[in-house]
Simulated scan of single mutants.
Amino acid sequence: MFRVMFHQPCIPPNTGNAIRMVAGTGCELHLVGPLGFDLSEPKLRRAGLDYHDLASVTVHEDLEAAWAALNPERVFAFTAHASTSYAEVAYRAGDVLLFGPEPTGLSEEVLNDPHVTDRVRIPMVPGRRSLNLSNAAAVVTYEAWRQHGFAGGE
């Protein structure tokens, strides 16, 4: 399946929502530190409801540790400053879908990381800065899963 990666997430409910999303899709969630919260925070637990035991969640100390653990073939970094739409990508199992922290997004340093295969955007009407992190991850994850016929889903 697909690997959703949040680089240095800051808002607990967004990560809680992503935990529910990966539990529902069979994907993995990779959190790259430092995190802007403690994983035991009530807001995160509430947003994730009872899905924590059903989700694959891994915390990596930093990006280097994440790359070493995942050894990704393809990494799609999501940024409002890309020209390729998420809907133009032919996703493959094992792809890493990389999202940046709220509210800044991915830094140039991360966007220029040699592991990043392509920069991708989610279209929005002009003048809008970004989508909510967990919503953006869900939009892309469900598109990738749809392209694979919702394999494993009902």
Rank of each mutant, 00 (worst) to 15 (best):
T104S: 15
D53G: 07
V59C: 11
E88S: 15
V116Q: 06
V139W: 02
F78T: 08
G94H: 02
F6I: 08
A55V: 07
M1H: 10
A65N: 10
A144C: 13
H81P: 09
V110A: 03
M5R: 05
C27M: 12
V32T: 07
C27A: 15
T117I: 07
V89M: 05
L54D: 05
L49K: 14
C27T: 06
M21N: 11
R74V: 03
E28C: 09
E154H: 13
Y142L: 09
H81G: 08
A137E: 04
R45D: 07
N112F: 07
A65Q: 13
R20K: 09
L49T: 09
L98T: 00
L63K: 06
Y51Q: 03
N135Y: 05
G36P: 13
D113K: 11
L106K: 02
N14G: 08
E28S: 14
G94N: 07
D113E: 12
P34D: 10
T15Y: 04
L70W: 01
E88Q: 15
N135Q: 11
A65K: 10
R3I: 12
A65S: 14
S134W: 03
T25A: 13
Q147F: 01
V32R: 08
N71R: 15
M21H: 08
E73A: 13
F6H: 07
G48A: 13
F78N: 03
P13K: 04
P9G: 03
R92Y: 02
G153D: 06
Q147E: 00
A55L: 13
L111Q: 11
E154G: 15
T117K: 12
P13N: 11
P101S: 14
